[in-house]
Simulated assay, not measured.
Amino acid sequence: MRLSVAHQSRPKLGEVRNGDMALVRTEGSHTLLVVVDALGHGTAAAEVAAEARRCLERMPLDGGVEPLMDAVHAALRNGRGAAIMMGLFDGKTLQCGGVGNVELRARGTRVPVVPTPGILGQSMRSLRTVSAVLAPGDRLVLFSDGLSFRLDLETARKLPPNEACMLLMERYARPSDDATVMVADVEN
């Protein structure tokens, strides 16, 4: 199985730089899905998100979510920090975990992820991770708190990932915050 993924991100109304970031990276049979929400807005937050991206682009993907999260936590230490949601798909199983107020919701297979309280780069409890075997037709939606947590996956159920991202952003993004949404569909 493989993932068909799209994402959309935009800065807070009135800002030029975005403190949110989405990353999709494939290495061998692994696909990494990440949404980062750096604390605050503007240039300083954008630099934190860029540092998280640089860290995740150089890490091997075959070790699981925990070493990836530990590496980002170390890379962001002594800065303003970030919330993050991360999923690692190996073609069959999704392993995921998050820190702070970034969400992952699934349609189809249940993925009972509960983000770990804290701020990546500052303080957090032991990372909670979950794994779920995915099936064709499942949909994953990762999003920052720049979108309302009242987000309804059914509104975009029949749309392809890119159109679903646009609709979810249009309907649920808050103008007072940076906003990022990622939609990933599991396909044969």
Rank of each mutant, 00 (worst) to 15 (best):
V133L: 03
F143C: 02
M182Q: 07
G108C: 04
F143Y: 02
A82T: 09
M1T: 15
L33G: 00
T43S: 11
S4Q: 12
K92G: 13
V24P: 01
L68R: 04
P115H: 00
S4N: 12
M59G: 10
G28Q: 02
A52L: 10
L147K: 00
T43Q: 13
K158W: 13
L23Y: 07
M59F: 08
D178A: 12
V133I: 00
S144V: 15
V72G: 03
R77V: 10
M86Y: 03
L56Y: 08
T155A: 12
P160C: 04
A106G: 06
G100T: 03
S29G: 14
A74F: 11
G137T: 00
G97I: 12
F89L: 03
L147E: 05
A6S: 10
M21P: 06
S123F: 15
E27K: 08
R53I: 04
G100V: 03
F143A: 05
L151M: 07
G79I: 03
I84R: 01
S123N: 14
F143L: 02
R2C: 00
N188S: 15
A52N: 10
L168N: 06
T93K: 02
E154K: 14
L33H: 06
V36C: 04
L33F: 05
E163C: 00
P175G: 10
A179K: 05
N162T: 14
L159F: 09
V102S: 05
V113I: 14
D177V: 12
N188P: 15
L61T: 00
R139K: 01
R174W: 04
A71F: 08
L168M: 08
P117M: 12
L13E: 15
